[in-house]
Every structure is written in structure tokens, then in C-alpha cells.
């Protein structure tokens, strides 16, 4: 049994627009199915606005999903009451993109890290202190820095604190929403390596959301590519990167730098802008920008099909 299994998840937002407040529906997540195995990492890639962050928040019910099923260890998350949700949150945690916005500027690091234990009434005062001190060394900060405020740390250090906070409750799954995008490239790999170490040590599972394909390749076991709220391709990381089945994935990968400069590679430039998720195109959502698009693409919504064993893509032409 998979640790997390998401089936046909939808997250629609109703927004008011214009002078008279006409309502439009934004389908941020539109029927996503995926699963994550114990100890594995699923990478989610896509351009900004494709719904990957909404997917993460939806799974944690930080925003209530509109439709679909989320099963954690076989139990249906969308049916859980407040008490069950609180228990679940010990097992599923989130790390945010912006380490400057995700830590309360008025609390010391110690207060920030003790908060999860206090919320769940775990341990005595002394035990909490000890636990915080243990973990803070694990993420590479010193004990004496615990009384400092977030602004006294660098971006990378802050993100380590954010990760430590998520780990305080010893969760099984961490949803990491662009955890390194706000960091300098030199710091990115340090944080990624820390995440990999922690994964080994604590047998963690990650859902790793990022727009950066090389970062996702580095950390993931499996990859899902999202476009306008839908998963267009999903498989093992090697399969997706070596033999992409969806033209969108191909376009994304063609923009990656190649290690061997003699190897000629055609860069696929996508036509047009990302369509608005409040007014998605008919048929295949990608057909407006797809170099392979034909007339049928505007009519048929392509299903996510198994193209080769274990390799799924939503395109009628591949």
C-alpha cells in the first residue's frame, strides 16, 4: 500500500472579478491522481500557475479540496474531522518556499521549533528543549543560535529552520513547496543534500514541488509533470528525463543545459503564453502551444495513458 494515494483530486477556486463581481471558477487542480511510496520522493514540476502549489496545500487540506480522494496510509483524509486532522498533521508536514515569510519574525528559533510540540502537547518542558537542541544540530545550526530571531539568519539557514520545524513531529511525509527556489544556487545544493540525508536517516517520503527540472531530477525517484491543473506525464525519473512522452515535457527538457557541448540539441520554443486557468483551452489544455498539435487536439481531452510499462502521458500523438 502506498503511503499517500491521491485520486482525481480537484481544487477549484471561485473568484469575483470586475465591477459587478462576476464569478469565475479557477480550476487550480483539475483531476490529479498520483501516489507516493514509503521512503520515496515524488517530484512535481511545471511552470508557475500550473497548480502544483495548490495541489500540495490541497493534500494537507490547508485549502479544502473540491472533489476527489486523498488516502494516507489507506485512510481517507477528506472525511477526517478536526481531531483526526490534528493527528494526521503529525505525520504530514509542509516546508514553504519563502524562508523569510514562513517564520514568525517576532519569535525566536527556539519558540518556532517548540511550537509544534506545544501544539500537540508532546513532552515536558525539558524534553521539548532537549528535542529542539538535538534536531537543531542535525540541521547544522548551533545550540546557542536558538535564541536568535529569524532575520539574523541567512536564507539557507532559515530554510533549515523551516525544515526542522516540519520534522519536530517526526512526520512520515513532507510536502516541500519550492523549498530551494528562493535560495542562491550555491546554497540550494546544501539544503537539498540535507533533505536527502534526513530522508535516509528518518525514512521520510517527500513530495517535492519545483519549477526547476534539474533540482527535481537530483532529488526525485518519480516525477509528475503538471500543466494547467492536470498531470500530463508521470513516471520514474530516468524514464521521464531520458525519454519524455509528452511534448510539453520535451519542451521543458529542451531548455535544460546539456553537459556535453558537442551534443547538438534542438531547443523547442513554446509559442504563446500560458493560458489562464480560469479560461482553459478546449480539448488538450496544451494544444494552443504544442508544436505537434492537430485539429483533433482541440476537441479530444487526452487521457493519461500507459505509453510504455510504468510510463504514463496524456497525449494522443505519442
Amino acid at each position: 500500500m502506498a503511503l499517500l494515494e491521491v485520486t482525481n483530486l480537484k481544487q477549484h477556486f471561485i473568484i469575483k472579478k470586475g465591477f459587478l463581481g462576476e464569478k469565475t471558477t479557477v480550476k487550480a487542480v483539475d483531476g490529479v491522481s498520483l501516489f507516493i511510496e514509503e521512503g520515496q520522493t515524488l517530484g512535481i514540476v511545471g511552470e508557475s500557475g500550473c497548480g502544483k502549489s495548490s495541489l500540495g496545500r490541497s493534500i494537507l487540506r490547508l485549502a479544502e479540496p473540491t472533489e476527489g480522494s486523498i488516502k494516507f496510509k489507506g485512510e481517507e483524509v477528506t472525511d477526517m474531522n478536526a481531531k483526526q486532522m490534528k493527528e494526521l498533521r503529525k505525520e504530514m508536514q509542509i516546508v514553504f518556499q519563502d524562508p523569510y515569510a514562513s517564520l514568525n519574525p517576532r519569535n525566536t528559533v527556539r519558540q518556532i521549533l517548540e511550537a509544534p510540540l506545544a501544539i500537540h502537547n508532546i513532552g515536558s518542558r525539558k524534553e521539548r528543549r532537549e528535542k529542539v537542541e538535538l534536531l537543531v544540530e542535525k540541521i547544522g545550526l548551533r545550540k546557542d543560535q536558538l535564541n536568535n530571531y529569524p532575520h539574523e539568519f541567512s536564507g539557507g539557514q532559515r530554510q533549515r529552520i523551516g525544515i526542522a520545524r516540519a520534522l519536530m513531529l517526526e512526520p512520515r511525509l513532507i510536502i516541500a513547496d519550492e523549498p530551494v527556489s528562493a535560495l542562491d544556487v550555491s546554497v540550494q545544493s546544501q539544503v537539498l543534500n540535507l533533505m536527502l540525508e534526513l530522508q535516509q536517516e528518518m525514512n521520510l517520503s517527500y513530495m517535492f514541488i519545483s519549477h526547476d527540472l534539474s533540482v527535481v531530477q537530483h532529488i526525485s525517484d518519480k516525477v509528475a509533470v503538471m500543466y494547467l491543473g492536470k498531470v500530463v506525464e508521470i513516471s520514474d525519473v530516468e524514464k521521464v528525463y531520458s525519454d519524455p512522452k509528452h511534448p510539453y515535457t520535451r519542451a521543458l527538457l529542451s531548455a535544460l543545459p546539456v553537459p556535453d557541448p558537442t551534443q547538438k540539441k534542438e531547443r523547442i520554443i513554446l509559442q504563446g503564453d500560458l493560458p489562464s486557468p480560469s479560461n482553459p483551452p478546449s480539448g488538450c489544455p496544451f494544444h494552443t502551444r504544442c508544436p505537434m498539435a492537430t485539429k483533433e487536439c482541440a476537441e479530444i481531452v487526452p487521457p493519461l495513458e500507459e505509453k510504455t510499462p510504468g510510463h504514463f502521458a496524456a497525449c494522443i500523438h505519442t
Partner: peptide
């Protein structure tokens, strides 16, 4: 950071 606290329960 408020969302983080909600995620913590």
C-alpha cells in the same frame, strides 16, 4: 508562517 501553523495543527 500562519499557514505553517495551520499545517502543524
Amino acid at each position: 508562517y500562519i499557514e505553517a501553523n495551520r499545517a502543524l495543527g
